[in-house]
Design a binder for these strands. Structure first.
Ligand code: FES
Ligand code: FES
Lengths: 153, 153
DNA sequence: ACCAAAAAGGATAATTTTATCTTAAATAGA
DNA sequence: TCTATTTAAGATAAAATTATCCTTTTTGGT
């Protein structure tokens, strides 16, 4: 669907975004721990996100990652685009080299609907919206702890 | 989204299904060539499909792969299930270990819609339906040849 | 019984994705 | 200016997926 790297990237971005009010910077270790992702891999992904201006980084002591107000308005698809690119949203569901109305695969009509729903999901949602949900406590960015799992789910 | 193996598998199945009227058996080479897939890899996939009774195989001279009438009625999702399993349709879009209404990730509501659209596409479509389209000439199972590409698309 | 043709099965290789480790660059503060 | 801290960058490793090759089994025809 979308790569693991991209999923880590969205989780990390949303977590960083959820701290905007606090005006603090977060370092790789804190982010990786919170979003349940491998630390070194997360560092690579944060690097990409910074290059694409999804989040902002500052080196040195008291440095770290944070997000600017204007970056909250960006749609989640910008993250997907930065890490995976836009190919998934154009690709043929049966793997033909190119998806085309003129030379459609047998699943074209059905697949297109699902693919567009996915595009929609990422396009219509902003990083800020997701961050709010996280702050609200209405959604989560990490796995349930095993302990509470039995009780909660 | 779904694996390459699975896409080859669907293409191969639909091609085999489209020949049901002819009452012939197709061998790996013919199938792989038609669906633009690597031959040895296709052989592996056809093996799996046969084991799951998606298609039927017969060894020996005059052997090959074919499909039975009852197999035409099967939904395409049976192919996905045979090769990739059903996990994609249950997985969290942001990679949490489990997708849950009680512990949803921030994209849960939006992602669920796309995921269900995909499930729908595979569930509501039968192999026979896709095969008919192919026979009709209204859809295609292989890539456009480069020559005709310029003219057609 | 034997041979040839075809799929099945097992081993291996190549590629891509995921993950880690090490060193370099930047920067705040003493 | 020196040091500690933190990201950036580059090299490497591990795992998963995709792909190939070789041997075995099955089977129809002679
Ligand atoms: S051609 Fe296959 S999805 Fe469009
Ligand atoms: S929890 Fe993420 S999609 Fe359901």
């Amino acid at each position: 669907m979308i790569s693991k790297a991209c999923k880590y990237g969205i989780r990390a971005t949303v977590f960083v975004a959820s701290k905007i009010e606090l005006g603090i910077k977060l370092n790789v270790k804190e982010i990786a721990k919170e979003v349940d992702a491998p630390e070194a891999f997360t560092a690579k992904i944060l690097q990409i996100l910074n290059k694409h201006r999804i989040i902002t980084s500052l080196k040195g002591p008291y440095g770290g990652f944070f997000i600017d107000q204007f970056q909250l308005e960006q749609p989640v698809i910008n993250i997907v685009n930065a890490i995976d690119g836009m190919a998934v949203f154009r690709e043929c569901g049966l793997g033909l080299e190119q998806c085309s109305e003129k030379h459609p695969c047998p699943m074209h009509n059905q697949y297109k609907i699902a693919r567009e729903a996915l595009l929609d999901a990422f396009q219509k949602t902003t990083i800020g919206q997701l961050a709010s949900q996280l702050s609200d406590g209405t959604s989560f960015i990490n796995n349930m702890e095993l302990s509470s799992a039995a009780a909660t789910d």
